[in-house]
Protein backbone atom coordinates (compact mmCIF):
# COMPACT_ATOMS: atom_id res chain seq x y z
CA UNK A 1 0.00 0.00 0.00
CA UNK A 2 1.43 3.34 -1.06
CA UNK A 3 0.04 6.61 0.28
CA UNK A 4 1.14 9.88 -1.31
CA UNK A 5 0.46 13.40 -0.07
CA UNK A 6 -2.88 12.36 1.41
CA UNK A 7 -5.26 14.85 3.03
CA UNK A 8 -8.36 13.69 4.90
CA UNK A 9 -11.32 15.59 6.32
CA UNK A 10 -13.81 14.96 9.10
CA UNK A 11 -17.21 16.65 8.78
CA UNK A 12 -15.90 18.76 5.90
CA UNK A 13 -12.99 20.14 7.91
CA UNK A 14 -9.44 19.03 6.96
CA UNK A 15 -7.72 17.20 9.84
CA UNK A 16 -4.59 15.64 8.28
CA UNK A 17 -2.60 16.69 5.23
CA UNK A 18 0.62 15.96 3.41
CA UNK A 19 0.72 12.39 4.67
CA UNK A 20 2.90 9.95 2.71
CA UNK A 21 3.99 6.46 3.70
CA UNK A 22 4.46 2.99 2.31
CA UNK A 23 3.34 -0.29 3.80
CA UNK A 24 4.95 -3.39 2.31
CA UNK A 25 4.04 -7.05 2.71
CA UNK A 26 5.17 -8.45 6.02
CA UNK A 27 5.33 -5.05 7.71
CA UNK A 28 3.21 -3.46 10.41
CA UNK A 29 2.79 0.23 11.10
CA UNK A 30 1.37 1.68 14.30
CA UNK A 31 -0.41 5.04 14.17
CA UNK A 32 0.23 7.29 17.11
CA UNK A 33 -1.14 10.69 18.00
CA UNK A 34 -3.39 12.36 20.56
CA UNK A 35 -7.17 11.81 20.55
CA UNK A 36 -8.91 13.62 17.72
CA UNK A 37 -5.82 13.86 15.54
CA UNK A 38 -7.62 11.89 12.83
CA UNK A 39 -6.58 8.24 13.24
CA UNK A 40 -10.09 6.87 12.70
CA UNK A 41 -10.70 9.29 9.83
CA UNK A 42 -7.47 8.16 8.17
CA UNK A 43 -8.33 4.48 8.54
CA UNK A 44 -11.85 4.99 7.16
CA UNK A 45 -10.44 6.91 4.21
CA UNK A 46 -7.91 4.16 3.49
CA UNK A 47 -10.67 1.55 3.74
CA UNK A 48 -12.54 3.44 1.01
CA UNK A 49 -15.46 4.41 3.22
CA UNK A 50 -14.91 8.12 2.70
CA UNK A 51 -13.24 10.09 -0.07
CA UNK A 52 -9.82 11.66 0.41
CA UNK A 53 -9.57 15.43 0.21
CA UNK A 54 -6.38 15.20 -1.83
CA UNK A 55 -3.54 12.83 -2.61
CA UNK A 56 -3.36 9.25 -3.78
CA UNK A 57 -3.76 5.85 -2.17
CA UNK A 58 -2.62 2.87 -4.24
CA UNK A 59 -3.64 -0.57 -3.02
CA UNK A 60 -4.36 -3.83 -4.83
CA UNK A 61 -8.11 -4.25 -5.37
CA UNK A 62 -10.08 -5.95 -2.58
CA UNK A 63 -7.11 -6.40 -0.30
CA UNK A 64 -8.27 -4.40 2.71
CA UNK A 65 -9.98 -5.73 5.82
CA UNK A 66 -11.19 -3.02 8.15
CA UNK A 67 -11.96 -3.48 11.85
CA UNK A 68 -13.63 -0.55 13.55
CA UNK A 69 -14.66 0.18 17.15
CA UNK A 70 -17.91 -1.67 16.42
CA UNK A 71 -17.44 -5.35 15.66
CA UNK A 72 -20.49 -5.85 13.44
CA UNK A 73 -21.74 -8.77 15.51
CA UNK A 74 -25.34 -9.89 15.67
CA UNK A 75 -26.43 -10.55 19.25
CA UNK A 76 -28.96 -13.25 18.35
CA UNK A 77 -26.54 -15.30 16.23
CA UNK A 78 -24.02 -17.71 17.75
CA UNK A 79 -20.27 -17.16 17.58
CA UNK A 80 -19.96 -19.68 14.79
CA UNK A 81 -22.92 -18.28 12.82
CA UNK A 82 -21.45 -14.80 13.00
CA UNK A 83 -18.12 -15.99 11.65
CA UNK A 84 -19.66 -18.27 9.01
CA UNK A 85 -21.64 -15.30 7.67
CA UNK A 86 -18.55 -13.17 7.13
CA UNK A 87 -16.63 -16.12 5.70
CA UNK A 88 -19.44 -16.68 3.17
CA UNK A 89 -19.57 -12.99 2.26
CA UNK A 90 -15.82 -13.04 1.57
CA UNK A 91 -15.99 -16.44 -0.10
CA UNK A 92 -13.55 -18.16 2.26
CA UNK A 93 -13.98 -21.15 4.54
CA UNK A 94 -11.40 -20.47 7.21
CA UNK A 95 -13.88 -20.50 10.10
CA UNK A 96 -12.20 -23.31 12.08
CA UNK A 97 -8.73 -21.80 11.92
CA UNK A 98 -10.12 -18.42 12.95
CA UNK A 99 -11.94 -19.95 15.94
CA UNK A 100 -8.77 -21.77 16.90
CA UNK A 101 -6.52 -18.73 16.51
CA UNK A 102 -8.61 -16.45 18.70
CA UNK A 103 -9.30 -19.19 21.26
CA UNK A 104 -13.07 -19.23 20.61
CA UNK A 105 -13.54 -22.99 20.12
CA UNK A 106 -15.30 -23.47 23.42
CA UNK A 107 -17.66 -20.57 22.77
CA UNK A 108 -18.74 -21.49 19.28
CA UNK A 109 -22.35 -22.32 20.17
CA UNK A 110 -22.84 -19.35 22.47
CA UNK A 111 -25.06 -16.42 21.37
CA UNK A 112 -23.00 -13.28 20.80
CA UNK A 113 -25.35 -11.49 23.21
CA UNK A 114 -24.00 -13.65 26.05
CA UNK A 115 -20.33 -12.92 25.42
CA UNK A 116 -18.28 -10.62 27.62
CA UNK A 117 -16.89 -7.43 26.08
CA UNK A 118 -13.45 -9.02 25.67
CA UNK A 119 -14.88 -12.17 24.09
CA UNK A 120 -16.88 -10.05 21.65
CA UNK A 121 -13.71 -8.22 20.73
CA UNK A 122 -11.94 -11.51 20.10
CA UNK A 123 -14.77 -12.61 17.83
CA UNK A 124 -14.57 -9.28 16.02
CA UNK A 125 -10.86 -9.84 15.45
CA UNK A 126 -11.40 -13.44 14.36
CA UNK A 127 -13.52 -11.96 11.59
CA UNK A 128 -10.32 -10.48 10.11
CA UNK A 129 -8.97 -13.98 9.62
CA UNK A 130 -11.99 -15.19 7.63
CA UNK A 131 -11.84 -12.25 5.22
CA UNK A 132 -8.71 -13.72 3.64
CA UNK A 133 -7.46 -10.22 2.93
CA UNK A 134 -3.86 -9.08 3.12
CA UNK A 135 -3.98 -5.56 4.54
CA UNK A 136 -5.53 -5.17 7.97
CA UNK A 137 -6.67 -1.72 9.07
CA UNK A 138 -7.26 -1.88 12.80
CA UNK A 139 -8.84 0.84 14.90
CA UNK A 140 -7.97 0.33 18.58
CA UNK A 141 -8.03 -3.48 18.26
CA UNK A 142 -7.10 -4.16 21.88
CA UNK A 143 -9.92 -2.27 23.59
CA UNK A 144 -11.41 -4.42 26.41
CA UNK A 145 -8.92 -7.27 25.85
CA UNK A 146 -7.08 -8.69 28.90
CA UNK A 147 -3.31 -9.17 28.93
CA UNK A 148 -3.52 -12.78 27.74
CA UNK A 149 -5.78 -11.90 24.83
CA UNK A 150 -3.55 -8.99 23.84
CA UNK A 151 -0.60 -11.38 23.65
CA UNK A 152 -2.73 -13.86 21.70
CA UNK A 153 -3.75 -11.16 19.25
CA UNK A 154 -0.14 -10.02 18.94
CA UNK A 155 0.84 -13.51 17.87
CA UNK A 156 -2.05 -13.66 15.38
CA UNK A 157 -0.86 -10.40 13.81
CA UNK A 158 2.71 -11.72 13.71
CA UNK A 159 1.55 -14.89 11.95
CA UNK A 160 -0.40 -12.74 9.48
CA UNK A 161 2.71 -10.67 8.75
CA UNK A 162 4.83 -13.78 8.38
CA UNK A 163 2.34 -15.08 5.82
CA UNK A 164 2.92 -11.98 3.70
CA UNK A 165 0.17 -9.79 5.13
CA UNK A 166 0.43 -6.23 6.38
CA UNK A 167 -1.22 -4.28 9.17
CA UNK A 168 -1.86 -0.63 9.92
CA UNK A 169 -3.22 -0.05 13.40
CA UNK A 170 -4.16 2.77 15.69
CA UNK A 171 -3.34 1.67 19.22
CA UNK A 172 -1.81 2.91 22.44
CA UNK A 173 -1.01 -0.52 23.82
CA UNK A 174 2.21 -2.37 23.14
CA UNK A 175 1.31 -5.53 21.23
CA UNK A 176 4.81 -6.91 21.61
CA UNK A 177 5.48 -6.36 17.93
CA UNK A 178 9.05 -5.17 18.14
CA UNK A 179 9.40 -5.11 14.36
CA UNK A 180 6.46 -2.73 13.84
CA UNK A 181 7.21 0.80 12.65
CA UNK A 182 5.59 3.79 14.32
CA UNK A 183 3.97 6.66 12.45
CA UNK A 184 3.27 9.75 14.54
CA UNK A 185 0.41 11.73 12.97
CA UNK A 186 0.87 14.95 14.96
CA UNK A 187 3.22 16.64 12.41
CA UNK A 188 0.66 16.10 9.66
CA UNK A 189 -2.14 17.96 11.41
CA UNK A 190 -3.93 20.22 8.91
CA UNK A 191 -3.12 23.91 9.26
CA UNK A 192 -5.84 26.51 9.72
CA UNK A 193 -6.43 28.78 6.67
CA UNK A 194 -5.03 31.71 8.64
CA UNK A 195 -1.73 29.82 8.94
CA UNK A 196 -1.60 29.09 5.22
CA UNK A 197 -3.59 25.85 5.27
CA UNK A 198 -6.06 24.52 2.76
CA UNK A 199 -8.82 27.03 1.95
CA UNK A 200 -12.38 25.76 1.76
CA UNK A 201 -14.86 26.96 -0.80
CA UNK A 202 -16.75 28.95 1.75
CA UNK A 203 -13.76 30.84 3.07
CA UNK A 204 -13.08 32.10 -0.38
CA UNK A 205 -16.64 33.42 -0.64
CA UNK A 206 -15.95 36.14 1.87
CA UNK A 207 -12.28 36.75 0.96
Amino acid sequence: MIVEDLAVARGGVPVLEGLSFRLVAGAALILRGPNGVGKTTLLRTLAGLQPALAGRVSVPAESIAYAAHADGLKAVLTVEENLRFWAAIHGTGAVETALEAMDLRGLRGRMAANLSAGQKRRLGLARLLVTGRAIWLLDEPTVSLDAGSVALFGSVVRAHLAAGGAALMATHIDLGLAEAGVLDLSPYRAKAPAAGGRIGQFDEAFG
Binding site: L49, I64, D71, G72, I89, T131
Partner: peptide, 15 residues
Amino acid sequence: DFEDGSLDLLATSPM
Protein backbone atom coordinates in the same frame (compact mmCIF):
# COMPACT_ATOMS: atom_id res chain seq x y z
CA ASP B 1 -26.57 -2.97 10.66
CA PHE B 2 -25.52 0.67 10.75
CA GLU B 3 -25.47 0.79 14.55
CA ASP B 4 -23.43 -2.38 15.11
CA GLY B 5 -20.93 -1.56 12.36
CA SER B 6 -21.99 -4.38 10.01
CA LEU B 7 -22.83 -1.89 7.28
CA ASP B 8 -19.24 -0.55 7.31
CA LEU B 9 -17.95 -4.07 6.99
CA LEU B 10 -20.43 -4.97 4.24
CA ALA B 11 -19.41 -1.83 2.36
CA THR B 12 -15.76 -2.97 2.41
CA SER B 13 -16.65 -6.56 1.50
CA PRO B 14 -16.50 -7.98 -2.04
CA MET B 15 -20.29 -7.82 -2.29
